[in-house]
Design a protein around this nucleic acid. Sequence first.
DNA 1: ATTATTACTTGCATTTTACAAGTGAAAACA
DNA 2: TGTTTTCACTTGTAAAATGCAAGTAATAAT
Lengths: 137, 137
Amino acid sequence: MEQKFRSTCPISSALDIIGDKWSLLIIRDMLFSGKKTYGEFGKSSEKIATNILSNRLTKLEELEIISKGKMEGNKKTNIYSLTQKGKELLPILMEIAQWSDHNLNDHLQDGAKPFVNRFKSDKDGFVKGMYAMMEKR
Amino acid sequence: MEQKFRSTCPISSALDIIGDKWSLLIIRDMLFSGKKTYGEFGKSSEKIATNILSNRLTKLEELEIISKGKMEGNKKTNIYSLTQKGKELLPILMEIAQWSDHNLNDHLQDGAKPFVNRFKSDKDGFVKGMYAMMEKR
DNA sequence: ATTATTACTTGCATTTTACAAGTGAAAACA
DNA sequence: TGTTTTCACTTGTAAAATGCAAGTAATAAT
């Protein structure tokens, strides 16, 4: 799979990579739920199809947004981790969450509000705190 | 066209709306280039197909991210404007631009860097400045 | 030795996207 | 005033992406 870019615009180029309905949900599950394995990703409430999940994991790995490793003492379970490039998607996800919180309120029913509020009141602090937390798990 | 949501997650729900390769590019052109008409949107360097452009404008209007009006003294040119809901997509676009600036540097060739740097050094100030500027045009 | 789990792949129907051409009304021009 | 552009789309069709169900192969558990 070769990545194609429509232009040299930074926004357009990012969308060429993550501009679909599934890639950022995988990243979301890694960032916020600590998911690591193919099986775990398949269990999200949005029910990603297994072939699409496989395709996206491959793409994200090729783009070095995630990396694939083996679980110690287990030869069949693969462990996916976020690279630095992948972790840096966090602020994008938080701004998306904040936008939804502001503008999709009637639809949502979720415990994400306090989370979003902590981000709003101190964006840099929140992001740094999340990065620190990820080191430990 | 009825909007469907895969879950009540804020991130997933936002992606159900703007998670494709074109919607945010239209918003980009409205925010950063002041584009307003169907013809102007069609001229972006990414070459959106006319049927897709039409489809996205309709969707974005239904979702009240943009609104459609008439140009004064002209019965054929339509004017699309961002609603508040649409303007609030700016921080998402800026975080995307910043991510690309950090992580896609070898690919990009664009004068967006100083722009991104102003955002990085003072995010809230940058966003407020942009909103103020948009009032005037 | 058998069953269950994990991480996928495959085939096919449906939906979305892309490309090219066409339409109809308003505006500009001769 | 008649003709040509311009503008904002729509339509038809091929190609690509997505969604769904079932299947496979290796490892791990019983």
